[in-house]
Amino acid sequence: MPEELNLNELSRVVFLGLSQNEMFTLNKVAEEETRCFFSLRYTSVSHVGSGDQRHGISSCPPRRLCAVNIAVFWLLGISPPTKKNTLSYKLSRLSRSCVYFLLSCLFFHTVVVLYGAPLLESALETFSLAVLLSTLTTLRCLCMLGPNVQAWIRVFSRDGAMSVWDTSLQITTGCSVVGAWLGAFPIPLDWDRPWQVWPISCSLGATGGFLTGLLVAPIWIRWHRKQLTYKLK
């Protein structure tokens, strides 16, 4: 990644533009998602027992997010340059990425169940939250770092970031998870609002956290540019 190191200033500008661009699209997606969830809740209230329909709607926002994420990263080509360019290598990378994504969905699902989500009841909703969380965290890692666990561990260990991209990845991932964590807070309140129903508030929290992360990351990087450039050497 030498060009990135040398053209530090440039890359930061590009990053800013990108994140704003991406934020814009994501904002739309989040809005849509919110609407989706609301409509889902209302439809489920009005037609009790239409579980399949529910699932169909609720899994759409992560799918769109996936698409947007992958498209953005593909277009900008931030992922580390690969030495081998054969088709089979690409395929194996793709399949490994898919497996990792699935595993991360299962991981998030397990964690959420450990946090107290019902085990059997509304398992589909829980899984949709897990997919959303994976999209916001794992998918970005896959896009930027590839299916390379060592790199992941490096980025997410203390002082492991080696470029602004790594830092932004750290920040957005952390913000998404913390957002989902904070999103669980309103659930016990007795306000009887439709968005308090599991897992809507958590999904909203995760999305909100992610958006905050996108907003905060450039600002934070700009703020700490002295330390960061030092670290990049």
């Binding site: 946090y115 107290g116 659930i187 016990p188 309140l189 007795d190």
Partner: peptide
């Protein structure tokens, strides 16, 4: 300060404990 959180205080503790374990 919230009556719901007092009623459901166990949820607070379970939540914190899970986070602590993680």
């Amino acid at each position: 300060a919230s009556s719901s959180f007092v009623e459901e205080e166990h949820q607070t503790w379970y939540f914190l404990l899970n986070t602590l374990c993680l």
